[in-house]
Design a protein around this nucleic acid. Sequence first.
DNA 1: CCTACCGATCGGTAGG
DNA 2: CCTACCGATCGGTAGG
Lengths: 231, 231
Amino acid sequence: MDQTVARTRSVITAPAAAKRPRGRPRKTPDERDDGNRRVELVNAAARLFRRKGFDGTSTRDIAAAAGMHNGSPFYHFKSKGALLYAVMDEGMRSAIARQTAALEAATQSSPDACALLRLLIRNHFDVLLGPGSDFIPVMLYESRSLTTRQRTLLAKLQGDYEALWQPVLKALSKKGRIKGPVKLARLLIFGALNWSVQWFDARKGASLDDLADAAITLFVQAPSSTRQSQP
Amino acid sequence: MDQTVARTRSVITAPAAAKRPRGRPRKTPDERDDGNRRVELVNAAARLFRRKGFDGTSTRDIAAAAGMHNGSPFYHFKSKGALLYAVMDEGMRSAIARQTAALEAATQSSPDACALLRLLIRNHFDVLLGPGSDFIPVMLYESRSLTTRQRTLLAKLQGDYEALWQPVLKALSKKGRIKGPVKLARLLIFGALNWSVQWFDARKGASLDDLADAAITLFVQAPSSTRQSQP
DNA sequence: CCTACCGATCGGTAGG
DNA sequence: CCTACCGATCGGTAGG
């Protein structure tokens, strides 16, 4: 939100150069308040919320992971719940931005619905399972702990995210390559993808590309002969 | 375990007859220790663990929901985690029993793989979303709170459950009606089903039959013409 | 952002 | 299974 302002200030304040011993956790004093610590808090919270759940994570855990002391997170966030919301909000915004950019780039070359779905799915897996992506899993599995208002705000972003998929799914449905009611198909497909958080192990078995291939193969019906498109 | 001993004792101690004012929740003294209270605890725990999560539920919540006082759950279970395990264990055993019975009954009449899959899926939705079924959702979404040993024990049951699906899925795969690696297909399909816990609303929209239909339609490829079976 | 601290809650236990 | 209770932890705040 207003981080840009704070960030600018830090550039001015900072001695700019290298040379500070700096203990592990603590940042240099001139980096204080510049928004970086806030980001570190959100990152630490995302990682811990994912691994231990919202209720299983204490604000002390988060503070320690960000190299702070007990009460310091409350300097940046007014409550633990606000931290949770920040994680989810950032997760959704970055996922939307990523998919939007991918779709824009792709549409220039090959506007094939099946290829677009594969792109969306592949990116979705990356957001769910890729390195450093704890935000969306937290969003998916910890929303019980949100307030009603937070839930409403995030539902808007989720709607935006789904809206990116809808035309692609509709096109495939119209071509008879995705069967059944589109709304239910979308929910089932998202479920298949989102559940991968529970079982995917990056160290063994399939790659994210394998997953995307398997998903496309499973959900998208083979084109009926080749006649369907030219009757 | 050794509850039988305590049970006998209570029968002796109890005044046996009627006539006691008794507050709402309490059972009659002669029903004490007969195992019913244990069942009530597990049921209450299942409902609360599902709604608020394991970490978000206190043993006092559970005690109150079962009409007991603060420390009483620990008369039946040695820890909160043991209660969680009991919920999941019962959930898995009853789900396995249900699917096994359904498969046995069905195999007598029509051994059609697609119909069998539809049966499994329909029952799975019932176990996930039907009335009073909080056990499997807890199993699916709270396993983070298990100890390693508990997780191992439950993994065995999960394997048994999956084993019921495997021949059906393999048959469909062999017929070319489920595409891609069977293992990944199974994981994706389970995900699609299990995720319904997050969005299904019994009061509006689709029924469990609608869901099962949509799932079958989405996952199972239309038989290629009708020729595939008689080459 | 640290220090010191508060009130509340929690899992669990003793002792009957 | 109840009563009374303990030690630990937790979210959050004051005051700098």
